[in-house]
């Protein structure tokens, strides 16, 4: 098992190198440059070129890439932002933690709303606990996060004035943005859990359990749930990726100083160090989460575990 984990962590290295290369390549191809974006109109072309030259922006992109990677590995230096001239890593880290907080809160909410309702709907199939949440989920799965955010903004903030519209001062500030990004995945989780449950309930071993005299509640909780939740775990882990992206929208709308909005902002300035550092951090987070999901899966499902451990008694 440990070998498997170590191998996956080692995979992070080519991932990071790849991400960096891709971003540099893309930045190289797309139009625009920091000088122009920062200095704006009213500055001559020479001055813009001089500015870019000073930043090291005009070097060929492979050279920039190699330089960046070298700095990253040997000096743990993620570069200086072209825009604010601050150390990219220092600039990003606090914002990154905020986005993570938001994204994880979103994952948590989407799981806690979607999964229990999904279980309930499967157990009470065709009855009220099934039909009403199903209809709502059907509608909400299609509503984009920013629409939800806007509606919540107007209702809770403009009309009722019970929640703040910007910032990150207290827990209150996280509620709306977290809900906004959590609701579409929650609807997905609901439908996915329900179908997984229904499939598990049909399995023969459930009939065996009932034939043993296991009370119905225990049949669900002990026999069905463990099997049904396996694919749901993977789904929830994957949704973290969606949520980190969704967090960008929420960050913009609710003025949350997260890394998503930072990256988007800096793309216009072609602030390569910040963009790369931010993206790498997100990639690391995502990879680690998928690793945890896989390990959890193996932990719960003995058939998968056997594949990884390959130990015979």
């Amino acid at each position: 098992m440990y070998k498997f984990v170590i191998k996956r962590i080692l995979f992070l290295i080519p991932t990071i190198l790849g991400v960096t290369l891709i971003i540099y390549a893309v930045m190289n191809i797309t139009p625009g440059n920091p000088g122009q974006a920062i200095l704006g109109t009213g500055v001559s072309q020479e001055d813009i070129d001089a500015y870019n030259e000073k930043l090291g922006y005009n070097d060929p992109f492979l050279q920039k890439y190699v330089r960046y990677v070298k700095n990253m590995i040997f000096d743990q230096d993620f570069g200086i932002s072209y825009v604010t001239k601050q150390d990219a890593f220092t600039e990003i880290l606090p914002r990154y933690l905020i986005t993570l907080k938001l994204a994880f809160l979103g994952v948590f909410l989407s799981a806690i709303i979607g999964i229990p309702l999904g279980i309930k709907a499967a157990v009470e199939q065709y009855k009220l606990w099934d039909t009403i949440p199903s209809i709502i989920a059907f509608l909400l799965a299609a509503v984009p996060a920013f629409v939800l955010g806007l509606v919540m903004l107007f209702v809770f903030c403009g009309w009722l004035n019970v929640l703040p519209s910007y910032g990150i001062g207290s827990f209150k500030h996280y509620i709306m943005p977290a809900l906004a990004i959590a609701i579409p995945p929650a609807a997905q989780n609901f439908r996915f859990t329900k179908s997984s449950m229904l499939e598990s309930i049909r399995q023969d071993y459930v009939r065996t359990a009932r034939a043993k005299g296991v009370p119905e509640k225990q049949v669900i909780w002990k026999h069905v749930l463990k099997n049904a939740l396996l694919p749901v775990i993977t789904q929830v882990g994957l949704s973290l990726g969606t949520l980190i992206c969704g967090a960008v929208v929420a960050e913009e709308m609710f003025s949350i100083p997260g890394v998503g909005s930072l990256i988007v902002e800096r793309i216009n300035y072609k602030d390569e160090p910040v963009i790369i550092a931010g993206t790498i951090l997100i990639a690391i987070c995502f990879t680690l989460v998928m690793l945890i999901v896989d390990v959890a899966y193996a932990y719960v499902d003995p058939r998968i575990r056997a594949k990884y451990t390959k130990s015979r008694k």
């Binding site: 903030c157 403009g158 703040p164 519209s165 910007y166 910032g167 913009e252 709308m253 609710f254 003025s255």
Partner: peptide, 18 residues
């Protein structure tokens, strides 16, 4: 000075006296 990125949020903040 508070960062309020979204214009809608700013209008609401103004209405709420923030």
């Amino acid at each position: 000075y508070q960062v309020i990125a979204d214009n809608n949020a700013a209008v609401i903040a103004f209405k709420n006296g923030e």
